[in-house]
């Protein structure tokens, strides 16, 4: 079920990119896309009835099953990369606003 939600988020991000012409909205849709992607990454590692992959004191007596830790490690990195690009995008957006005075790409015209 989580996987369908993730794919739906991915598609929503793509829809946003396809239709939006506003700089900020594009950045938002990129973020939605990345969240969808991250969700998908985590969903790949999910095991039915598995618990978080942390060794705790009550772990070794009632034989629990771990969820796949690698995707969550990868997702950690993917999130931070998403943050990096969004920060850069927003900085560029501020620059664009200073230069063109608007966020709508159509109004900016050919440079």
């Amino acid at each position: 079920m989580l996987q369908y939600a993730a794919i739906a988020m991915l598609m929503l991000g793509l829809y946003g990119l396809l239709t939006q012409r506003n700089i900020i909205k594009i950045i938002v849709s990129i973020n939605i896309l990345e969240i969808g992607l991250n969700l998908f990454i985590v969903s790949v590692g999910y095991v039915e009835g598995g618990i978080a992959p942390i060794l705790t004191s009550d772990f070794n007596n009632n034989g629990l099953v771990f969820v796949d830790p690698l995707p969550s490690a990868l997702v950690l990195t993917a999130i931070v990369i998403g943050v990096g690009t969004t920060a850069l995008g927003l900085a560029l957006a501020k620059n664009i606003y200073q230069k063109y005075g608007t966020f709508e790409i159509d109004e900016m015209g050919e440079e």
């Binding site: 942390i54 060794l55 830790p69 690698l70 950690l76 990195t77 931070v80 990369i81 990096g84």
Partner: peptide, 23 residues
Amino acid sequence: ANIVTAIVADYRSFDTLGEVTVL
């Protein structure tokens, strides 16, 4: 104890180095 930290900081810590450079 936290296996995810084991992966992030030990097994694949090179990724994290790359990660930090991105930020």
